[in-house]
């Protein structure tokens, strides 16, 4: 099963840090994503762009995880050479991960 079947996601940016939320549609799936979608997996998924640490915050009250990826935006939104310097498109890639 793909993560996109049970969760939705949004990317935000601050400087060279990208944060990606993963939020379950149905609270019964929270423990599954909390178990399967680890910071290590997310770091590995984005290994070609994330050069720093990936931290994971848990917000069980809303069935969500928040991944904070350091060194993820090509040196920072304001100077990145990327077509999408904010990394706004990244969340929808992560949803293709297998659960």
């Amino acid at each position: 099963m793909k993560l996109l079947e049970i969760a939705h996601s949004r990317t935000g940016d601050k400087g060279d840090i990208s944060n990606i939320s993963v939020i379950v549609y149905n609270m019964k799936d929270y423990e599954l994503i909390a178990d399967k979608i680890t910071a290590t997996r997310v770091k590995n998924f984005f290994k070609d762009i994330v050069h720093g640490d990936v931290l994971r915050y848990e917000i069980p009250s809303i069935g969500a995880l928040n991944f904070v990826m350091h060194g993820a935006l090509g040196g920072g939104v304001t100077r990145s050479l990327a077509i999408d310097p904010h990394g706004k498109t990244l969340s929808q890639f992560l949803l293709e991960i297998d659960v």
């Binding site: 939705h8 949004r10 935000g12 940016d13 944060n19 939020i23 809303i62 928040n66």
Partner: peptide, 11 residues
């Protein structure tokens, strides 16, 4: 929920 976590690091 999506907007709450938009650009938030440690909730």
């Amino acid at each position: 929920k999506e907007q709450l976590l938009y650009e938030i690091h440690d909730p």
